[in-house]
Design a protein around this nucleic acid. Structure first.
Ligand SMILES: Nc1ccn([C@H]2C[C@H](O)[C@@H](COP(=O)(O)OP(=O)(O)OP(=O)(O)O)O2)c(=O)n1
Ligand SMILES: [Mg+2]
Length: 825
DNA sequence: GCGGATCAG
DNA sequence: ATGGCTGATCCGC
């Protein structure tokens, strides 16, 4: 739907005039392809043309950007954005949430304005210079292009909603969403036609669609389905990367290599039935899913019942071919057969493209992007950059203001982008513009970097209650950390006021810990200073959170860093099999009061705390060991008042009382640790001329993927009792922790076991030995002839397979190269 | 290292 | 009346 020519026409007096300047500035320097950029590209994106501002019934385009419906989602094309945005606005106006959104909108406007300022100050010379730099990067990136991998991204359709529809026939034909009146996790495709989507509050969705049915979440089921689906993935690529519960990246290259050689007999055969009630095949879940003996099958034809129309159909065999597309069809068929849920997939030479492709024919479809440079470039050329993972609403807006809305613009405006964006951001944009992305899934790190718990509640402002909430969160976090056998030393407290204003306050401590008491002391101290900083006004909160970062595996620090607290001592003493899963409920004997208790380790520690404190208090009438001596409430609850086993039950009750249902808070949020390694140190050794305060964050989670490992058993543990099933993880954490052998991109020799700093140094030396200088000279002089962007990209797209193209290394290289360039200037 | 902001799922 | 939660990254200090 490119039919939204006016979508970025944001009226604002402050910048409407600078639009013209920007247009001029942009226009004067578009010559990258040797021909000046056609005006249509600019005019369509920067607005000012072809709009009739008279039709003001409060058009969608005049509504605050961040309050508008975000229809960048499958199944949401061709909606009446004007009307829908209008409804959302009506429902929002006057709310505290809305007020806060307005504040944020103003900030973004300032960013935009700043960007325009910077743009207008650029001289053509600046831009030419920057383009030369950009081109040398493009050269380097081009050399890394690897089209030999077959990457697939598979994504379940309307995942939570589909599961609910599968299990409740009544929901199949109505618009429905999963979540609660406060927040929806997702919606089915019928509901999407009304503008109802994930991340939208249920009560607003109801205004958009009064018939909307909202059902609670059932994470246990989603997790179950995810496990089934992953079993299938595992057969095609054991190294697949799961993201969240409902999607994954697979590298099918190896599988296809083997598949090519399969004889007909060796192919998997599945049984299914075709039914008139749908144009699609209707795979049925039969016990014997794969048969290798076709005679057998023909001898005993069965009747299968169609799920939809309940008619019985004669089963038929089905096999799939050896091509990549057939392999993916087979996977999707098996997923549907196994789970009765559909998935969509994208096939492409790298993850970035595969992700985009999987959305192309969603739902229940797949799309293959041919792995040759021309096809890739053609695809990217017209690709709206908003579809690229990592470019969100704000980035889209910032770039649109520079006339960049599609992949082709990224290359055309590379000079400006180079000048207005950070190195990292810029390089990512160039990569997107060139259709590059990760080609190796195994280079993606999987260690988590932080763990947190946060909760929304009805207003709390009484200090006692605030401390109490803080304690509750701290307990939950400590349990989570212990269960994951992690320790950390940076504690962050997050606060959201009733006006939705968010602040975070962090403090790093000397030693690693996951002890409830240590975390609590810090968190409460932070909270205390925040409360005090407000005086005499109260601190009125709607959300509080506690996060631990600077993480480390427990085993790596117990010896040195971590303090030998009561926690670890007693843990060793009393829970025999305790070495694993410390947050599980176990039987403990309190060394103080000698009672036998059934609870988590964390709970046990609190019990001991209480007992000890009670003793202290009894012994000496001074019971003040914690900092905030004034707040007795927070200590009160720590005393022996037997807040045993289920702290989560308590928190649930409190939460429920606050007006939200369990299920609403019981979300499957536990996303996996993501993101691959980033070898880039900081790279901002050179400061850009201007660069608004926050360079566009595209790329932020650019490649952040993750090995599928710990999946959220967190929230189920919170509420779904009896779910203490210790899910064995298929992958031990430290599979690729070994120091990698990195190929120096300059001298092309392997550099073993070097730290990042050493690697930096090595590359510096290499650069100084001028190998690269030559390259730079030649490429820049090449680039001077701005004749052949496209032919050139095509041409350079030789296989060049053997090139060591660890993406991150090349990123690094790009940074270094940039740095050198700047130093030279 | 900290705090704000952006992004995804 | 009701506007989530978890985790990650980037930027400018
Ligand atoms: N803001 C969000 C977005 C998603 N999810 C959950 C619910 C979704 O079902 C699941 C998968 O997210 P997707 O982005 O893949 O969305 P869907 O699978 O629901 O729809 P589709 O993939 O068909 O667009 O993650 C969530 O809790 N909160
Ligand atoms: Mg999905």
């Amino acid at each position: 739907m490119e039919a939204m020519s006016d979508k970025d026409q944001f009226q604002n007096e402050d910048y409407s005039s600078s639009d013209e300047e920007q247009w001029e500035a942009a226009h004067t320097n578009i010559f990258i392809e040797g021909k000046t950029c056609n005006k249509s590209i600019i005019s369509s994106s920067s607005g000012g043309q072809g709009l009739m501002p008279e039709k003001h019934g409060q058009k969608d385009s005049t509504i605050m950007n961040r309050m508008r419906l975000d229809d960048n989602k499958a199944g949401m094309q061709g909606l009446d954005r004007d009307r829908i945005s209008q409804v959302i606005l009506e429902a929002s106006k006057g709310s505290r949430f809305y007020e806060n959104e307005q504040r944020k909108e103003v900030q973004m406007q300032q960013r935009l304005s700043h960007q325009q300022d910077a743009l207008s100050k650029l001289t053509p010379t600046d831009i030419q210079e920057a383009e030369r730099e950009a081109f040398s990067l493009v050269e380097v990136l081009q050399a890394t292009r690897d089209l030999n991998r077959t990457i697939v991204h598979i994504d379940m359709d309307a995942f939570y909603a589909s599961v609910e529809m599968r299990d409740n026939t009544d929901l199949r034909s109505v618009p429905m969403a999963v979540g609660g009146m406060s927040m929806l996790s997702t919606s089915n495709y019928l509901a999407r036609r009304y503008g109802v989507r994930a991340g939208m509050p249920g009560f607003i969705a109801k205004k958009l669609c009064p018939e909307l049915v909202i059902v609670n979440t059932h994470f246990e089921k989603y997790r179950e389905v995810a496990a089934q689906v992953r079993e299938i993935f595992n057969e095609y690529d054991p190294g697949f990367c799961g993201m969240g519960l409902d999607e994954a990246y697979l590298d099918l290259t190896d599988h296809l290599e083997n598949r090519r050689l399969l004889t007909d007999k060796e192919k998997l055969t599945f049984v299914h039935a075709i039914c008139e009630c749908s144009t699609e095949t209707c795979p049925q879940d039969v016990a014997d899913k794969s048969r290798h003996d076709s005679a057998d099958r023909l001898a005993a034809p069965k009747q299968l019942q169609c799920e939809r129309c309940l008619k019985y159909k004669e089963e038929a065999p089905i096999t799939f071919g050896v091509s990549d597309e057939e392999a993916v069809k087979e996977m999707r068929f098996r997923i549907e057969q196994r789970t009765q849920l559909t998935a969509s997939a994208g096939i492409a030479p790298n993850t970035m493209l595969a992700k985009v492709c999987s959305d192309q024919n969603k739902p229940n479809g797949q799309y293959k992007l041919t792995a040759d440079v021309d096809s890739v470039m053609e695809f990217v050329h017209s690709l709206p950059i908003r579809k690229v993972s990592g470019i969100g609403k704000v980035s889209e807006r910032m770039l649109a203001d520079l006339g960049v809305t599609t992949g082709s613009h990224l290359i055309e405006k590379c000079g400006v982008l180079r000048l207005l964006h950070s190195q990292i951001s810029f390089e990512h944009l160039m990569r997107v513009g060139m259709g590059l992305g990760s080609t190796r899934l195994d280079s993606w790190g999987s260690e988590r970097k932080s763990m947190s718990v946060e909760r929304t509640f009805r207003e709390i402002h009484k200090p006692d209650d605030l401390y109490s909430k803080c304690e509750e969160l701290t307990i939950a976090l400590a349990d989570d950390l212990q269960e994951a056998r992690l320790v950390g030393k940076t504690i962050t407290v997050k606060l959201k006021t009733v006006n939705f204003k968010v602040t975070t306050r962090a403090r790093s401590i000397a030693s690693y810990t996951n002890s409830y008491r240590e975390i609590e002391a810090v968190a409460k101290d932070i909270l205390k200073s925040e409360i005090h900083s407000m005086r005499p006004d109260p601190l009125r909160l709607r959300l509080m959170g506690v996060r631990m970062s600077s993480l480390c595996d427990e085993s790596q620090v117990t010896a040195q860093g971590k303090q030998q607290t009561l926690t670890s001592l007693f843990a060793k003493t009393h829970s025999s099999a305790s070495q694993t899963r410390t947050a599980q409920v176990s039987t403990y004997t309190c060394p103080v009061c000698s009672s036998t208790l059934m609870l988590t380790l964390s709970g046990f520690n609190r019990h001991i705390d209480g007992c000890l404190q009670q003793k202290e208090v009894l012994a000496s009438e001074r019971g003040v060991t914690v900092d905030h001596s004034e707040d007795f409430s927070c200590m009160e609850s720590t005393t022996c008042a037997t807040r045993d086993a289920d702290s989560s039950l308590q928190s649930s009750a409190a939460y429920s009382a606050s007006g939200m249902s369990f299920e609403e808070s019981d979300r499957e949020n536990k996303t996996l640790p993501k993101k691959g390694t980033r070898l880039l140190e900081k790279s901002n050794s050179h400061t850009q001329p201007v660069k608004s305060s926050h360079a566009i964050g595209e790329e932020q989670q650019g490649n952040r993927l993750c090995k599928y490992e710990s999946q959220g058993e967190k929230q189920s543990r919170n509420f779904e009792k009896g779910s203490f099933t210790s899910t064995p993880k298929e992958r031990p954490l430290s599979d690729s922790a070994a120091p990698p052998v990195i190929m120096c991109p300059v001298c092309n020799k392997p550099q073993e076991g070097l730290s990042m700093a050493s690697m930096n140094k090595h590359i510096d030396e290499c650069l100084n030995t001028s190998t690269i200088k030559d390259l730079l000279c030649s490429t820049t002089s090449d680039s001077k002839k701005p004749e052949r962007k496209k032919p050139r990209l095509s041409l350079a797209g030789r296989k060049q397979k053997a090139i060591a193209n660890e993406p991150s290394v090349l990123q690094f290289f790009g940074g270094k190269l940039q740095q050198k360039n700047n130093n030279a200037n």
